[in-house]
Amino acid sequence: MHEILKRINELALKRRTEGLTQNENAEIANLRTKYIQEFRGSMEELLLNTTIVDPKGDDVTPNKLKKAQAKNRMKQIW
């Protein structure tokens, strides 16, 4: 993911300084799509591994999230 972000930043700098070719414009659009997909995937994993606890120590994780977590545990790894 860091390589994608690094390349996006390189192309953005080039766009500001000298402009991009048609191929570079397509590349940056493709890289941004990949970056967003990876970001959303990592956020989903983070949420699926989160438990919400109130100050009393009680689990107050919403039922919708608990169902998604249970569904995720049932997925086969391979």
Score class of each variant (00 low, 15 high):
I77N: 01
K34H: 15
R15E: 12
A29R: 11
I28C: 06
Q37M: 04
L20T: 08
D54R: 02
S42I: 12
R40A: 03
Q22G: 02
T50A: 14
I77R: 00
L5A: 00
E38T: 10
R15G: 07
E10A: 05
V60P: 10
V53E: 11
T51L: 15
N25Q: 15
Y35R: 11
R32S: 12
Q37F: 01
N9K: 07
A70L: 09
N23S: 04
I77H: 00
T61A: 10
G57R: 07
A12H: 06
F39D: 02
G41A: 04
T61P: 05
E3C: 07
L5W: 00
K67R: 11
I52T: 12
I4D: 03
M43Q: 08
M43I: 04
A26H: 05
T33I: 06
E45Q: 10
K34D: 15
N63E: 15
K75A: 02
P55S: 00
L65A: 14
K75M: 01
P62L: 13
L48K: 10
Q22S: 08
E10G: 02
T50E: 12
P62T: 10
L5N: 00
G41P: 02
K66R: 15
K75F: 09
K6W: 01
L31E: 08
Q69I: 13
K71C: 08
R40K: 01
K66H: 14
L48A: 09
K6M: 05
I28A: 07
T17P: 07
